[in-house]
Design a protein around this nucleic acid. Structure first.
Lengths: 239, 239
DNA sequence: CGAGCCGTTGAGGGGATTCAAGCTCAGTGG
DNA sequence: CCACTGAGCTTGAATCCCCTCAACGGCTCG
């Protein structure tokens, strides 16, 4: 039988319930802090809900806060030296974004909501000087960093090479891993798919249309779709 | 006037001098540990020199050690689901590789030496449980993680989109940043260039030959070349 | 209902790939 | 010393895939 974490005992505090649910979803990033820290955090963190296509922070902006994604999908993007936009990876429920703020560094990418999102905004000064902070927290943070690096590698290897059809198929696979429990996936705008895969809007559109005709994909609305996992797997295997 | 770090005082120990030079080059990753830790480390670390094209570790292999690159160039690569090799990024002098070992995780990528390399092999158990370790060390480690993530993003944005000529030019720019003080750069095998840029061997070769004819590049040997920085900049700007 | 954005589809051209053939160069052994 | 060898590099020709340019339709919103 698991003991109730200290910060769940103060249920009267309005922020407590938010953090509780957050704890469930994000793997207890701050569940290891001592009660005093938790009380301080409860009073200072914000949990903004943002509409889709809202910029959370810009690349190069001084990093003042780190965020947990409680719901929705966030994209990280950058501008090429040539001025074109590239999406580097996506973050979903439970992911930590803007960690570089904890190092007093400017944000490395621009972060934009792809869907309506619910965040947890934690001012970086609250986490304090990381050296003095609790060891389990820093360990967890490093785990997050490694996870992000792994993700970046996966995107780089799987989504930037091969023919257009394969790239789109692999992206659909990734999107299904970010899906909520409804089984529906978020469908990016064609321009965003292009920026993720290094393709043009037209090519992305052609591939999606083709897959829809083949029954791999069924559109529910402009931004929602359902996949046929078997058909997807078969199409991927067919090379 | 800077005080002599503790581990430099035991100059009689053979490993001490290696670490001293390592400290200079890698930004004092372990310069912050207390003297006792340093002594322990001196006795247990290894500083292997490996020829080119040697695998340092494999993807998925249990991570038992972290390495500092003291000299040479290391590539991180992975296999696509389709079985083709992709190079995700490069590491050079002063970079830390295989950090995931510190989290008791398997290595995320395969690491292979591109040139003869000198490494510093630090068994992960020496760094101990990161939570209990010195705060400055964990802070420095997190900085390294962020640096790797930034690099990965740069590779993803700059080297995987645009026409082949531009990609090769940008790669040359990156290689010049990894160059030693001689002003010569390491020229990858064409197959490796392809794996870095998502191009075929032939296309990579054509682009290099073209740039050589234009005077952007001059080959000294199979694996060494010198760049004309101005010509490179002009070619990049010409779009 | 017009405006604007987004998605779709078509036609044509261009750039990368594919397939194929020489070439260079370092290493080997006669 | 030099032919032999094999791996890597280069170049050519043909094909194909993706990009570019363009037009059109659907949808939302003022």
């Amino acid at each position: 039988m698991k003991a109730v974490p200290p910060y769940l005992q103060s249920e009267n505090h309005p922020q407590a319930r938010v953090c509780a649910s957050c704890e469930v979803r994000s793997g207890a990033l701050f569940g290891v802090l001592d009660p005093n820290s938790i009380v301080r955090i409860h009073t200072d963190i914000d949990d903004p809900s943002l509409p889709a296509e809202t910029r959370i922070y810009a690349r190069g902006e001084p990093g003042t806060a780190v965020y947990t994604v409680r719901a929705g999908i966030v994209r990280f993007q950058r501008l090429t030296a040539g001025g074109q936009r590239r999406i580097v990876r996506l973050a979903g429920r439970g992911d930590l974004i803007g960690q570089e703020a904890l190092l007093q560094q400017p944000y490395a990418d621009e972060a934009v909501s792809c869907t309506p999102v619910q965040l947890c905004r934690i001012p970086s000064h609250l986490v304090g000087h990381l050296g003095q902070a609790d060891g389990t927290l820093t360990h967890e943070l490093m785990r997050r960093w490694q996870q992000a690096l792994e993700q970046a590698g996966l995107w780089a290897t799987e989504l930037t090479s091969g023919v257009a059809r394969q790239r789109v198929l692999k992206l659909l696979g990734e999107l299904s891993r970010l899906a909520d429990e409804s089984g529906e996936i978020w469908m990016p705008r064609r321009e965003d798919m292009g920026a993720m895969l290094g393709l043009t809007v037209e090519t992305a559109s052609r591939m999606v249309s083709q897959l829809r005709r083949e029954g791999v994909l069924k559109s529910l609305s402009q931004r929602r779709a359902v996949l046929d996992p078997d058909a997807l797997a078969r199409a991927l295997a067919a090379g």
